Amino acid sequence: MDGILPLWKPKGLTSHDCVIKIRKLFKTKKVGHTGTLDPEVEGVLPICIGQATKIVPYLTETTKTYIAEISIGKATETEDAQGNVIEQQEIGEQLAKSDIEQVLQNFVGNIDQTPPMYSAVKVNGKKLYEYAREGKTIERPQRTVVIHHLTLLSDVERKSETDYRFMFEVNCSKGTYIRTLCVDIGKALGFPAHMSNLVRTQTGSFHKANTYTFAQVEQATELDKHNQLLSPISQGLEHLDTWQVDANLKEKVLHGQKLHVPKQPLKTDPFKVEYNGHLLAIYQNHPNKSELIKPVKVFQME
Rank of each mutant, 00 (worst) to 15 (best):
K74P: 11
D80Q: 07
S98F: 04
S119Q: 03
E87I: 07
E93H: 14
S119E: 06
K74T: 12
E87D: 15
L95G: 00
N106E: 13
G73I: 00
Y118P: 02
E87P: 05
V103C: 11
I72S: 05
D99H: 10
I91Q: 12
A68I: 04
P116V: 03
M117G: 08
D112Q: 11
G92D: 14
T76R: 00
E101K: 09
Q88E: 14
V103H: 12
Q82A: 12
Y66A: 08
I86N: 09
Q88W: 07
T114A: 13
N106S: 15
K74F: 07
L95F: 02
I86P: 08
M117V: 11
A75P: 05
A81W: 12
D112W: 08
P116C: 05
L104D: 08
D99R: 11
I67R: 02
I111H: 04
I70Q: 00
A75G: 03
G92F: 05
P116D: 04
D99A: 12
Q82R: 10
A68L: 06
F107T: 00
N84Y: 08
V103P: 11
Q82H: 11
N106F: 01
A96P: 13
P116G: 00
P115N: 14
G73C: 01
Q113K: 07
K74V: 07
Y118F: 15
L95D: 04
N84I: 15
S98V: 10
D112A: 13
K74D: 11
A120D: 13
Q82L: 13
E101G: 02
V121S: 06
S71Y: 00
T76D: 07
T114F: 12
M117S: 09
K122R: 08
K97Q: 14
V108Q: 02
I67C: 06
V103N: 12
E77Q: 09
S98Q: 15
Q113W: 06
K122N: 08
Q82D: 15
I67A: 04
A68M: 07
Q113V: 05
E101N: 05
V108D: 00
M117F: 11
N110R: 13
E87N: 14
Y66T: 06
V103W: 10
Q113D: 10
S98N: 13
A81D: 15
Q89M: 12
T76C: 09
Y66W: 14
K122H: 14
Q113S: 09
S98H: 10
P116F: 01
Q82P: 05
V85R: 08
E90S: 12
G92K: 01
V121F: 03
E93T: 15
E87Y: 11
E90P: 03
Q105G: 09
T114Y: 11
Q94S: 15
E69W: 06
N106H: 11
I111G: 01
T65N: 11
V108R: 03
E87C: 12
T78C: 09
V103G: 03
I67N: 03
E79W: 03
Q94F: 06
V85A: 08
E77D: 15
V108F: 01
Q88C: 07
V108A: 01
T114E: 14
E101H: 00
